[in-house]
Nucleic acid binder design. Sequence first.
DNA 1: TTGTAGGCGTTATCAA
DNA 2: TTGATAACGCCTACAA
Lengths: 344, 344
Amino acid sequence: MSEPSTKRVTIAAVARRAGVSPSAVSHVFNGRPNVSEATAARIRAAADELNWRPNLASRKVSGGGGRSLGLVIARSRGTFGRDPFFMRLLAGLTEPLAELGWSLSLTLVRPDEDEEQLYRQWWGEQRVDAFLLVDVRDDDPRLALVEQLGAPAALLGAPVPGPVASVTVGDGTAFAEAVEHLAGLGHRSVTRVTDAPGLAHTRARDERFREAALTRGVRAEVAAWDKAADDPVADLLGRLGESTAIIVDSETVAAEIVAHAPEVGVRVPDQLSVIAWEDSWVSTIVRPRLTAFDAPVEESARAAVALLERLVRGEDAAPQTVSGRRLLVRESTAPAPNNREESP
Amino acid sequence: MSEPSTKRVTIAAVARRAGVSPSAVSHVFNGRPNVSEATAARIRAAADELNWRPNLASRKVSGGGGRSLGLVIARSRGTFGRDPFFMRLLAGLTEPLAELGWSLSLTLVRPDEDEEQLYRQWWGEQRVDAFLLVDVRDDDPRLALVEQLGAPAALLGAPVPGPVASVTVGDGTAFAEAVEHLAGLGHRSVTRVTDAPGLAHTRARDERFREAALTRGVRAEVAAWDKAADDPVADLLGRLGESTAIIVDSETVAAEIVAHAPEVGVRVPDQLSVIAWEDSWVSTIVRPRLTAFDAPVEESARAAVALLERLVRGEDAAPQTVSGRRLLVRESTAPAPNNREESP
DNA sequence: TTGTAGGCGTTATCAA
DNA sequence: TTGATAACGCCTACAA
């Protein structure tokens, strides 16, 4: 294997080859204006020939660039893997990150593990320079933690009280739209199905939903998805009361409901209309295809990166709202069944 | 919040607090045996109180630990996002990586971008210490590239000629099993549906498939999935000839076929049996549920990490085969239709 | 068992 | 416009 790692090429080698001092090379590669165009060109050529690039670790040590974003996802492999949202998030993160030259450091921790420890570690090691917080819960200890550490951080989701900046997808008119759509189809009672109850955005959404329903004369209920139940779909459907339509926080759950409902005797959309609060390709491979809200995940990712970049530079950054949630009407919503009318 | 970022705490601070020299601290944190248990405890206590951890960048500069694995995925956001395999891969990677204290640096590049450039950059910057190669194609330029760079690398998928180590999921008996299963159901002609034609494992699989079919008196065909077609499913089904069963490389494609086939007049599994070569939760939310091969993705990920770790330490590592692909019979396979029997 | 000194590759400061 | 020189925070000989 011909000893490939003879010696790593350094800035000194480039300097020697260009007949200048290391600092000149540094200047050129950091866009400082005090180098003549001629020598700059010579330096760049030398670097190219040697295929040299500034060592990231060294830059970090000497205070320079080389930033990296930490994303810690506290989910089991299973619940991570079955949420297409994360694919979109990751994909959306990489592009703006690449533009900045930042790395993305990703890890999963099991929900029962001590994730705070990990934040401490990554920050302490200076492995990352900022955190993106997802799945933020009410009273999430990470909020105080990043504050205490002094780590730049932003959360994706509903804003929470406190100084941690947030990037929110503007739900402004979404519930109104959804309820409007359903009311137009004759539904008089709608249940909102929440996935993980503790999440910070749940309460805000509940309120919006209730408000939207109220002003349209639609009855609003809320039910929690119980994944621990023997047959979660049957369990949920059994708790629906008079509702003829549901709005489901999680797309995965919506897909499961739509797929499984017929097998427990409920036809979608004939007997039950279903709207998913998130959208991905999954919505189109279940039958009936899911009527869903397409959220601007990629844009949120970009906004979050931009926000964190500002924070890292020491500027302070205001909370961001990204708008663009739009209802994609597909096949899982239909006129309300008449036969439910008499039901108490 | 009491000025948190006054000054980053360093090894010197810890040393001072413990009343020792910096090197003593270093020794303790690098597991060297030349420190008495008493002072080691004192040092650890001091580090704890100061909440200090060795700066990763500094360790890297001074040749120490702090490794990081590079994963560059050359896919569009869309094709990345709709492949559950990557979720499993990422999830599977994080655990062994965390055990080693390695970071995972992830990025997506568009297929038309110069991905080699990125490998060069990451390696040159020493942003990563090893690469994991996925979606390896015949004659993949990255193989020569990592060799030239002297970068430790391993590929996930079929072994390729050359010195780059590979982690392969042993397909040994998988095709035999699949064909056996289908032959047992009366199928006499089976088509293998390939996703991306250039991938390195395609040819190997083709051969295995043909062989397995031959020895069981089943006719073997191969057809490529044409995602550019107006209606890819209809297009594919139109090219199936006598085949009453298909084995589909990509789970996503299989899901799409199963979902869409009835809409173009083909009932699954009555008229067509479908087997997916990969498995994830998606297999269970389409109807009929997909009969699929469950591949040990997490184990492969772990094997790849272990292999790369050895490579980085300078040991050389043999190609690995991870076994455990097993057929999960669900609802998308059924007895072959009779009406096809008369056909020669 | 502990501490000192030098080096890792880069950036920043300041003099030439 | 350039180039010494001193950090940056840690690790590893080697000396005490």
